[in-house]
Write a protein that binds this DNA or RNA. Structure first.
Lengths: 155, 155
DNA sequence: GGAAACAGTTGTATAATACAACTAATTCAT
DNA sequence: ATGAATTAGTTGTATTATACAACTGTTTCC
């Protein structure tokens, strides 16, 4: 793949990220939660119940960061923190009734949103988009992060 | 497109975003700038010179936020702020020599990174990935943000 | 020539985040 | 079986990222 194409795809990815990020920000704001809370909410909703470390790991956040996000969500009545009786080091985080209602609401909103995005895309292209994301996600996961690329001269 | 596929693609997009975000974070950290500075740096580098409002707009940030990011970049010797003599309301932001060196460094690192990502992907799939991103980005831009979806009951 | 619009900065508040130091619980190895 | 190492989670502290509101200049436009 030549540099020109790579530049182009980088640009598109950034733009997509900004668009979706902006959308998420206004959505979450309008329903009274923060972006971080929304990410956690969706993951907890998906898993049903999950420990703090696992949740932090799957969101790529530090445990301390997540601990405080969960604090705020407990405060807001969205999730419950329960000690795990098998291993008392763990807490199990699960959605409250209110949290579940919000989760379902947001989940279906996102589904509808993407459904209308795909409505704007020719039918015969839709399959390849899913495949493309799968391929890219796999490749990026496999590759991991590159080493530091800075040279002393530019520091 | 059925709900199952939409859920899947949402999941993939989130994962991709987290992976790339994590990579960006460690890259920027290792070269001594912050993520916000990196975004601004790349945009200024691409444009050559740009006003504060235009830069803020294209990054989707508030002017005040960007003004302070630029403060820190001036401090770090990465960019220059110059009054525009034509219209003295504007400042022109441009890269310093040091900023340009860093820009080129990061730009080629990203290019190499994505080149190696695409190396992991079958050759005959590469074209469709670019096309997919183009289609999605366009569709999302066209659609804009949906209205607030929260119902009172869940607040 | 004043009103309206615009670019940018500063004050203030908050969200998001990480690292380090800590407590409590569990596992493991001698 | 007991003391060391590991693990889960929390709290202290610091920093980054961000927005909104109020403000200062500058330009445009009736």
């Amino acid at each position: 793949m030549d540099v020109q194409e790579i530049r182009l795809i980088r640009e598109r990815m950034l733009q997509l990220q900004r668009n979706l990020g902006g959308q998420l920000k206004s959505d979450t704001k309008c329903c009274g939660i923060t972006v971080a809370q929304c990410h956690a909410l969706m993951k907890v909703g998906l898993k049903g119940e999950i420990s703090l470390v696992e949740l932090a790991g799957s969101l790529g956040l530090d445990n301390s960061t997540l601990s405080r996000t969960i604090d705020s969500m407990v405060q807001a009545g969205l999730v419950e923190r329960n000690a795990n009786p098998q291993d008392r080091r763990y807490v199990t985080i699960s959605l409250s009734r209110k949290g579940l209602a919000l989760y379902n609401n947001i989940d279906s909103t996102f589904n509808e949103y993407f459904a209308s995005v795909f409505d704007l895309i020719p039918e015969d292209k839709r399959g390849q988009i899913l495949e493309s994301f799968t391929l890219l996600t796999e490749a990026v996961s496999k590759l991991g992060s590159p080493d530091c690329y800075m040279e002393e001269s530019t520091r």
